[in-house]
């Protein structure tokens, strides 16, 4: 690990001011940040500890939306009664990720900022355009079983690792950020960036901007929702494929739907095409299969991960059938 100055910020403005310089990073839970610092993948000169900021509240909104402080721990969010009742897919996604110890440390805002677990990103002996722009992508012609099939480019096929973010993508969350110029909001779909020709740019935050809250707008039918994660072992493993699904089924007809996929995209992957295919259709397996085909229609598999296309479809169909059964 390289030397850095540790600054313990006492309030938002101090944190933002301290982090305004280049090579400065916030640290909250540290579960990914410190991991990457130990490997010299992240080499900040200044680390701003934001754990003393007052961003630990889960506030229920009058319309049954919810506002989540950026420092709320993944464990607290996952077991929160309001979240479990109104947005069960979010609770399930969180509980499917990492370990209890890591969930006790990891923050909501930090989860948004976690970086890919592509082995070539983690191993500094290999080329990686995300880690070292212009160095190449060792994954494209390497062992790419865990890599993405959606949203890839000729520069990067790294999978976005978060489970929580898949649920937040489906739920259409809004990210509140505060910077030197004030507060702004970022729709979830715009927060993470596709790799395109600049895979080292992963999100829409500016230097020094602090995530303060995540708002989930009211979505009553998300009370019937589910997160299904498929992985190589039963616990404590990243997704091969996952699906976050909410359905509003009335008299056998789908009125509203939310669909997002994990483990397959270079960012948390909401599929508006799949949602459109479901809305107005009858709640049957053939409808779900059609939606799944549309969700993966642009998939671009590589040598070792072609299985993910079919697996993601089956994951989505299974999740849809499960949610239909809840109705």
């Amino acid at each position: 690990m390289e030397p850095f100055k540790l600054i313990r910020a006492q309030d938002n403005l101090q944190a933002i001011h301290s982090a305004g310089i280049k090579q400065s990073k916030f640290i909250a839970g540290g579960t990914n940040m410190l991991d990457l610092m130990k490997l010299n993948i992240e080499t900040p000169r200044q680390v701003v500890d934001i754990n003393k900021l007052s961003l630990y509240k889960i506030e229920e909104m009058p319309d049954e939306g919810v506002r989540i402080g950026a420092l709320v721990k993944n464990s607290d969010l996952s077991y929160n009664p309001f979240i479990k009742t109104h947005f069960p897919m979010l609770s399930e996604a969180l509980l499917s990720g990492a370990s209890p110890q890591l969930r006790n440390m990891a923050s909501t805002g930090g989860n948004l900022m976690q970086r890919t677990r592509c082995p070539y990103f983690y191993n500094t002996d290999f080329a990686c355009n995300k880690r070292l722009p212009g160095s190449g992508c060792a994954a494209i012609n390497g062992y790419n079983r865990m890599n993405a099939v959606l949203g890839t480019s000729d520069q990067c096929i790294a999978t976005h690792p978060s489970d929580m973010c898949v649920a937040l993508a489906a739920l259409g969350a809004i990210i509140y950020v505060q910077g030197a110029k004030g507060i702004r909001t970022i729709p979830f779909a715009d927060f993470h960036l596709l790799p395109a020709q600049t895979p080292h740019l992963e999100h829409n935050l500016r230097q020094g901007e602090l995530i303060t809250h995540i708002e989930i707008p009211a979505l009553p039918f998300a009370a019937k929702s589910h997160y299904l994660k498929v992985r190589d072992r039963a616990s404590y493993e990243f997704a091969l494929t996952s699906a976050a699904v909410a359905l509003d089924v009335q008299n056998g007809i789908i009125r509203q739907a939310r669909i997002a996929l994990g483990g397959v995209g270079t960012k948390p992957w909401r599929s508006l095409d799949a949602e459109k295919a479901l809305i107005g259709a009858s709640a049957t397996e053939s409808t779900y299969k059609r939606a799944a085909d549309l969700a993966l229609a642009t998939a671009n598999p590589y040598k070792d991960n072609a299985f993910k296309v079919e697996l993601a479809k089956r994951t989505l169909v299974r999740a849809l059938k499960t949610v239909e059964g809840l109705s």
Partner: peptide, 27 residues
């Protein structure tokens, strides 16, 4: 690297991985 749990301690009553916590964050 937070994968094995051998470093687990209780911080303010909660189990955490002490290997992924900076001592300086424990004020």
């Amino acid at each position: 690297h937070g994968q094995c749990g051998a470093c687990t301690v209780l911080a303010d009553g909660r189990r955490i991985n002490s290997c992924l916590t900076l001592a300086g964050m424990c004020e």
